[in-house]
Design a protein around this nucleic acid. Structure first.
Length: 207
DNA sequence: AGCACA
């Protein structure tokens, strides 16, 4: 039995915690025929939403008003994770991050650097600042699939395709039709976490 | 950290 189904079964059998919130998200998706239990989109949605809480179900939606869209729209129903329900590892990491922020703030003060310290120094004309209709994504967790990335990026207009690199699973390229659209997608998804430990780092691809 | 495909 696939892991995402195991997870769902556990959810059904386990007594529910005092009800938090039920979150419903609808997302337009892939072309796969959703043969009930194994559709790659469904699996990807489980993968993407697991971090937010206890997934009750991923339900294909029927859209009568859009007869040409037979499938590809799902709602994800889940109980949002309560604050502080995260595992101890995460807690520790958060504490470390806080401590580091403090340290950094001190260093800045001591060196006398103000907010405008870098004003006047022109940014180097490198890949980070050069617009491109292709985005370069880094820091992806191993379990990332191109379907997951497609779900994330195709919600922005003029999405073209995701190209993963087999040899380097933690990076990928996402193409849009122009650099205006790619920039919007970049801003919106910058730092998006597929797992709590992997905020994605998005920059423009090198020309 | 890292930049592939055409």
């Amino acid at each position: 039995m696939p892991r995402y189904l195991e997870h769902r079964r556990t959810c059904r059998e386990a007594p529910l915690p005092p009800c938090q919130k039920v979150y419903v998200a609808s997302i337009s998706l892939c072309q796969d025929t959703p043969s009930e239990e194994h559709c790659s989109c469904k699996r990807s949605l489980y993968g993407l939403f697991l971090q937010y809480g206890r997934i009750l179900d991923v339900v294909p939606l029927k859209i009568e008003k859009l007869p040409e869209v037979k499938h590809g729209l799902y709602s994800v129903n889940l109980l949002l994770r309560e604050e502080g329900t995260n595992n101890p590892q995460e807690k520790r990491k958060k504490q470390e991050e806080k401590a580091e922020k403090k340290r950094n703030a001190k260093e800045v003060q001591q060196s006398g650097a103000a907010d405008g310290a870098f004003q006047g120094k022109p940014e180097p004309e490198d890949a980070v600042t050069t617009l491109n209709n292709i985005l370069f994504i880094q820091n992806l967790p191993h379990e990332t699939t191109s379907m997951m990335l497609q779900i994330l990026f195709q919600q922005y207009p003029s999405f073209r395709e995701v190209r993963m690199i087999n040899a380097k699973p933690s990076i990928t390229f996402v193409e849009f039709e122009d650099d205006v659209q790619s920039s919007i997608a970049m801003q919106s998804l910058q730092g998006f976490k597929i797992t709590p430990h992997n905020p994605m780092a998005i920059s423009y691809a090198k020309k």
